[in-house]
């Protein structure tokens, strides 16, 4: 007999014709929201610039753009303290920027320059910003999930109140190591927060063609991990879920899981909207775009009199200028010297 419950089903969150309205910002600090809106706009502008560079062949490394799903990174990062650690995956530009990673170092990295955050050795898929708490992002799907749990084990052994965050996608829940790690983290009651950005796609393949149910919360349920599901395009919902999860983990309540339901506007890799690794997308991108996380927050702030269209335009222009300047500087930076190939195999 198969029994299902709420942990199996996304319900209305999977319906692209819903959640178009401005988000509810009642009770939130509007200045904080404006800062976060500014950050989301900056991330989008940076991604558009990277997409353009990729499209023109100036950027050669594979780039997985986060346009349309800026909220999970910004919402979660707002709840991170010094000493906390975050791990990401292949689509992690937003994690890097939301945590305060340097924009020019990101652009230099995707351009393969020595001044990049990984000294030009990583490209888009291997980002690090230790001072900001980003301990590494890698493109082997699922690889950082147990690594994050291990950093949480270290925090627990040290009796510190640090938490560790593991960002992953819905595709990573199909890897065995995800299930091993949920069991491991639950067994040892580790202070780790798993944030699943469920954008319904793994590469070109829709969730419905990969799993019998569309919500990944059922895996948390199975392993005794506390879970929450949120509209991953609603900044306030994401912030509240992050607060609860991070506080619980910090207080010793064991691992937490947040499923943030969102949608990817561009292809799995690269800048194009109309194609996904050679496959034309059937899903209605236009209706998903009406769930735009930036627009829904901006409208809510406008309705409450905290923002007007001119301010939003100004935000966009300023971000574009900042990105353009960082881009031009990064393009002038040197490539790594040939010695870097052998010098960095072992730690010096």
């Amino acid at each position: 007999m198969i029994t299902t419950d709420d942990s199996h089903h996304l319900g209305k969150l999977a319906d692209s014709n819903s959640y178009w309205d401005p988000i509810n910002i009642d009770g939130e600090d509007p200045r904080e929201l404006l800062d976060q809106l500014r950050l989301m706009v900056l991330i989008r502008c940076a991604e558009e610039r990277i997409g353009e560079g990729f499209g023109k062949g100036v950027i050669r490394c594979p780039c997985h753009l986060v346009i349309g799903q800026e909220v999970p990174a910004v919402g979660l990062a707002s709840r991170i303290q010094k000493g906390d650690k975050v791990f990401g995956a292949h689509r992690s530009h937003a994690h890097y920027l939301a945590l305060g990673g340097d924009l020019r170092k990101l652009l230099a990295e995707v351009l393969g320059r020595d001044t990049g955050c990984s000294k030009g050795m990583g490209g888009s898929m291997h980002l690090i910003a230790l001072e900001q708490g980003l301990y590494g992002t890698v493109p082997i799907v699922g690889a950082t999930i147990p690594i994050a749990a291990g950093a949480a084990l270290a925090a627990k052994l040290d009796k510190s109140d640090s938490v560790v965050v593991s960002f992953l996608g819905d595709g990573a829940t199909e890897e065995g190591v995800f299930h091993e790690t949920l069991n491991f983290a639950s067994n040892f009651q580790l202070p780790v927060v798993f944030v699943i950005e469920n954008n319904l796609f793994a590469s070109h393949l829709h969730m419905s063609l990969r799993q019998p149910f569309d919500s990944t919360c059922r895996f948390a349920q199975a392993h005794g991990v506390s879970w929450q599901r949120v509209d991953g395009n609603d900044l306030v919902a994401m912030k509240r879920a992050s607060s609860l999860a991070v506080c619980q983990a910090r207080a010793g309540a064991g691992p937490q899981l947040i499923e943030a339901v969102t949608y990817r506007w561009r292809g799995h890799v690269g800048d194009r909207e109309d194609q996904d690794v050679g496959v034309a997308r059937k899903e209605g991108l236009e209706s998903w775009k009406k769930r735009d996380p930036i627009q829904r927050l901006a409208l809510a702030l406008e309705t409450s009199g905290r923002l007007d269209e001119g301010m939003l335009q100004d935000m966009r222009k300023k971000s574009q200028t900042v990105v353009a300047e960082a881009w031009e500087q990064a393009r002038l930076d040197p490539f790594p010297a040939a010695e870097a190939l052998l010098d960095r195999v072992y730690f010096k």
Binding site: P146, A149, G150, A154, V164, V177, T181
Partner: peptide
């Protein structure tokens, strides 16, 4: 038993966890 840790039958997760702990300052 905190420093000599017996584990679930999960070689991949345990090895990854040890790596994560090493990145966080331990010597596992």
């Amino acid at each position: 038993k905190e420093r000599v840790i017996d584990t679930p039958v999960s070689e991949l997760a345990c090895t990854g966890a040890a790596l994560g702990a090493a990145l966080a300052g331990k010597r596992p």
